[in-house]
């Protein structure tokens, strides 16, 4: 009797999701208000790639096409991929360390803190680079505060951490609401509201440069520690008896997951549901082995956010904020996941 609680083997899942990512990335360049034919697209990307090695291709595309691909679409595509991968990986990591399938990347207050930081920066009329820095800094500060409070909590440690996260999140959300109340309703309030909805429009190379290293610094350990996450899910005592220092591992994974969440939220605003839905979807495809689930979640998150962002920027001329779309797609999809037929043994 073969176990059939998943659809594909681990490596097959990664191949499928990896292929989907490459296809979605290429397709993303083709869509947009300013059409760029496939041949020209390949030319521009090929030229930039060859220029790394001192080579190049003779220009047969217009400068406007170049600007659309290189300055607008590429940063946005890259940002979708990075943010999607980060939010999804963070979700998978939190679900592993808290052994709770409902844990999302914002469980420890990373999003609430970032929202507060951004609202504050917008309120004081800071530049967009400073808004990003304020969101990132406040996000890390909030999670540190949650840690600090939970150290003082009596009783079960993990529960204390989650409760502290919920309380401090709502504290910062109240702070954000207060800033919105005090903000100028003609220009600042809409900007804050729009930021909080989450959007990848206006993704810039400078923002990618800012978040790339913290994201990498978080994603690499999350990927490298994926086997230990399996062992940790047996419970702390058993994990320790198998040579895994459960407490240290949990803190390490939380720090890494917080870093990627804070980086993501600081450039994209609040994009919900990715961290919850994607790991569950990948789990259905390849099973709960983190050796495949973690990289699968990273790829799946990137594919998902790319697709949603394409819808966001192409379906309506105004561009629906992506945070609204992920909720529209994510919540029903999650309902389908939990009510859908399970593969019986």
């Amino acid at each position: 009797m073969k176990r059939r609680d998943h659809l594909l083997s681990g490596p097959a899942t990664l191949v499928v999701l990896g292929t989907a990512l490459v296809v979605c990335t290429l397709v993303s360049f083709l869509f947009g208000r300013y059409p760029v034919p496939f041949r020209e697209l390949c030319g521009i990307l090929g030229d930039r790639f060859l220029s790394l090695f001192g080579g190049g291709i003779d220009q047969f595309w217009t400068d406007a096409m170049y600007a659309a691909v290189w300055n607008v679409r590429l940063p946005r595509v890259l940002m979708s991929v990075l943010v999607g991968a980060c939010l999804s990986a963070a979700g998978a990591a939190y679900q592993g360390v808290f052994q709770n399938p409902m844990a999302a990347p914002d469980v420890l207050g990373a999003s609430a803190g970032a929202g507060f930081g951004a609202a504050l920066a917008i309120f004081f009329g800071l530049s967009s680079a400073k808004i990003t820095i304020a969101a990132f800094g406040m996000s890390l500060l909030t999670v540190s505060l949650v840690f600090w409070v939970s150290r003082r909590a009596k009783g079960e440690k993990t529960l204390g951490l989650v409760l502290a996260g919920i309380m401090i999140s709502s504290l910062f959300e109240a702070g954000t609401s207060f800033i919105k109340l005090a903000a100028d309703p003609n220009n600042k309030l809409p900007e804050i509201t729009y930021w909080l909805m989450g959007s990848l429009s206006g993704a810039k190379w400078s923002e990618i440069q800012f978040v790339f290293w913290p994201m990498l610094l978080g994603l690499v350990p999350l990927f490298a520690l994926r086997w230990r996450l399996n062992v940790l899910s047996m419970g702390d005592d058993e994990a320790r008896s198998m040579g895994v220092d459960a407490g240290r591992l949990r803190v390490g994974v939380i720090v890494a997951a917080t870093l990627v969440t804070a980086s993501s939220v600081s450039v994209s605003g609040m994009i919900g549901w990715v961290g919850l839905v994607i790991p569950h979807m990948v789990l259905r495809i390849c099973g709960s082995d983190y050796r495949w689930l973690m990289p699968g979640s990273m790829l799946g998150g990137a594919v998902f956010l790319l697709i949603v962002d394409n819808v966001s920027r192409n379906v309506t001329s105004a561009g629906i904020p992506i945070g609204i779309l992920t909720a529209f797609v994510g919540a029903p999809f999650f309902l389908w996941l939990i009510t859908g037929r399970r593969h019986e043994e």
Partner: peptide
């Protein structure tokens, strides 16, 4: 260590 029972959080 061989515990009395084991309840992994995942399948």
């Amino acid at each position: 260590y061989i515990p009395q029972s084991s309840h992994p959080a995942f399948n």
